[in-house]
Computed example of a mutant assay.
Amino acid sequence: MIQFPNAKINLGLQLVEKRPDGFHNLVSCFYPVHWTDALEILPTKGEATFTLSGLPVPGEPTVNLCWKAYQLLRRDFELPSIQMHLHKVIPMGAGLGGGSADAAFTLKILNQQFQLGLSEDALENYARQLGSDCAFFIRNRPVLAVEKGDVFQAVDLNLQGWHVLLVYPNLAISTAEAYAAVSPQFPKKSLETLLSQEVSTWKGEVVNDFEKSLFPKYPVLAEIKQQLYELGAQYASMSGSGSTMYGLFRTAPASPLPFPADYSVWQGVL
Rank of each mutant, 00 (worst) to 15 (best):
Ile2Gly: 10
Pro5Lys: 15
Ala7Glu: 08
Lys8Cys: 07
Ile9Gly: 02
Asn10Pro: 02
Gln14Phe: 04
Pro20Arg: 07
Pro20Ile: 04
Asp21Ser: 04
Gly22Val: 03
Phe23Lys: 09
His24Lys: 04
Leu26Pro: 00
Ser28Ala: 09
Phe30Glu: 00
Tyr31Met: 09
Trp35Glu: 04
Trp35Ser: 02
Thr36Trp: 13
Asp37Trp: 00
Leu42Met: 09
Pro43Arg: 13
Pro43Thr: 11
Thr44Gln: 14
Thr44Pro: 09
Ala48Lys: 10
Gly54Val: 01
Leu55Tyr: 04
Leu55Thr: 12
Val57Cys: 11
Pro58Ala: 14
Gly59Val: 12
Cys66Leu: 14
Trp67Ser: 14
Ala69Arg: 01
Tyr70Val: 10
Gln71Gly: 11
Leu72Gly: 14
Asp76Gln: 03
Leu79Glu: 05
Pro80Val: 08
His87Thr: 15
Lys88Ile: 07
Ile90Lys: 05
Gly95Trp: 06
Gly97Phe: 00
Gly98His: 02
Gly99Pro: 02
Gly99Asp: 07
Gly99Ser: 04
Ala101Tyr: 02
Ala104Arg: 12
Ala104Ser: 14
Leu107Ser: 01
Gln115Leu: 11
Gln115Val: 09
Gln115Tyr: 09
Leu116Gln: 06
Leu116Glu: 04
Ser119Ile: 01
Glu120Met: 03
Glu120Gly: 05
Asp121Ile: 11
Ala122Cys: 14
Leu123Trp: 00
Glu124Met: 13
Asn125Phe: 13
Asn125His: 12
Asn125Ala: 15
Arg128Asp: 15
Gly131Pro: 08
Ser132Phe: 00
Ile138His: 10
Val146Thr: 13
Glu147His: 06
Asp150Thr: 06
Val155Trp: 11
Asp156Ala: 08
Asp156Arg: 13
Gly161Lys: 03
Trp162Thr: 02
Leu165Arg: 01
Pro169Asp: 09
Leu171Glu: 02
Thr175Ile: 00
Thr175Pro: 00
Glu177Arg: 02
Ala180Asp: 12
Ala181Tyr: 07
Val182Leu: 04
Val182Ile: 10
Gln185Trp: 04
Lys188Cys: 08
Ser190Thr: 11
Leu191Val: 05
Thr193Trp: 04
Leu194His: 09
Leu195Met: 13
Ser196Ile: 14
Ser196Gln: 15
Ser196Glu: 13
Val199Asp: 07
Trp202Gln: 12
Trp202Leu: 13
Gly204Lys: 11
Asn208Tyr: 05
Glu211Met: 14
Phe215Met: 12
Phe215Pro: 07
Pro216Trp: 09
Tyr218Asn: 04
Leu221Phe: 07
Leu221Thr: 06
Glu223Val: 08
Glu223Pro: 04
Ile224Ser: 00
Lys225Thr: 14
Gln227Leu: 15
Leu228Asp: 05
Leu228Thr: 05
Gln234Ile: 08
Met238Val: 02
Met238Ile: 03
Gly240Asn: 02
Gly242Asp: 02
Ser243Gly: 01
Thr244Phe: 00
Leu248Val: 05
Phe249Cys: 00
Leu257Met: 08
Pro258Thr: 06
Phe259Tyr: 15
Gly268Leu: 05
